[in-house]
Design a protein around this nucleic acid. Structure first.
Lengths: 178, 178
DNA sequence: TCATTTCTGATCACCATGTTCAGAAGTTAA
DNA sequence: TTAACTTCTGAACATGGTGATCAGAAATGA
């Protein structure tokens, strides 16, 4: 039958989004496969959750690879493009804050995914296009914080994806530019 | 011996902060009581987690009761005061995003806790002291998002409590004021 | 068709949760 | 101190999810 890991991860993400403590049995059932097959691919439940996190961060990383590395361009425009992409990943990424178990080994993946954006902020800061009195780490952290807030609002049905992206960029740019 | 629920909750918060999937056995051990006693107070693990959430939100609510209800005062000053109080609750509140299990019944407690702040923002917005082109919900959500981001940075040892509070207020005010 | 890979269902051990209860330990009042 | 009361404890038990193992079924591919 040849079941792809990707298929398992997609189904698992959907099931766990609704019910972070869903059993592997129920995930297997939803994916139309047996529980044993899941264990063939992922030795433990935590391994599955970690793979899920890595997958989500890789998708986010792909979006953030779109930021220019040789020039700055229009900050607001670049950021809006990236933000729209990230907002649309809500379904894949939101569980990162809902079911971690104890997964803390994702740090390097976080860094890898957000590296390009952090570097972009760094260059913008050096060029005095972003405030220099705020730590670079905070520029990144605050952006992520707003992203998560927007994800929540979108999922709650209080905000459309497009408007959410605009609010994030508007809010963040107002605070981060000199 | 007369064990207070408060004592159980405090210990549980500490243990679960480090290890969201800690067993009730280990929590009981850390609290110096027996597992049975925990079950005497909280019928299920989820009940304990919910009580923990309610407790955290009540503490946060107490802090936010400090916002003035009859006048506006200095927005930055009021906000800084509240933010300092909330930042210092990190240890009690951060687990809200780390171990929810499936607890989703905290909505009313969220509203109750953040009600005063939301009302304060509403009045400030009406008085044109805050931007009117951003939804009131977003003003609140973005503030919470920044608060969570700052909690993470503080816990990671990247930021002191005082500086974290200042960054939140600076960032939020820059974006939310006309 | 036959060999190989992949998936499945069954069975097993282990551990955390949740229940029950008899008795120990602590408290209060006479 | 004694007696009545409340609270805490340890032990036993059932249940259910996780993780391991493996023989055999099903799919794949030459």
């Amino acid at each position: 039958m040849v079941i792809r890991n990707e298929a398992i991860l997609t189904t698992a993400a959907q099931v766990l989004a609704k019910r972070p403590d869903a059993t592997l049995q129920s995930i297997a059932h939803a994916a139309g496969i047996s529980r044993t097959t899941i264990f063939n691919r992922f030795p433990t439940r935590d391994a599955l959750l970690e793979a899920l996190g890595v997958d989500a961060l890789q998708r986010m990383g792909q979006v953030m690879e779109r930021v220019p590395t040789d020039h700055l361009g229009d900050l607001a425009e670049v950021l809006l493009d990236v933000t729209k992409g990230l907002i649309s990943l809500g379904a894949h990424a939101q569980f990162l804050y809902g079911s971690p178990g104890q997964s803390g080994g994702l740090d390097s993946h976080w860094e890898e995914a957000f590296g390009p954006l952090a570097y972009y902020f760094f260059r913008a800061q050096s060029a005095a296009r972003l405030r220099k009195d705020q730590p670079l780490r905070w520029l990144v952290a605050s952006y992520i914080g707003l992203l998560i807030a927007a994800w929540d609002e979108v999922e709650a049905g209080e905000l459309g994806s497009a408007k959410a992206a605009r609010l994030i960029v508007d809010t963040w740019m107002s605070a981060a530019t000199p």
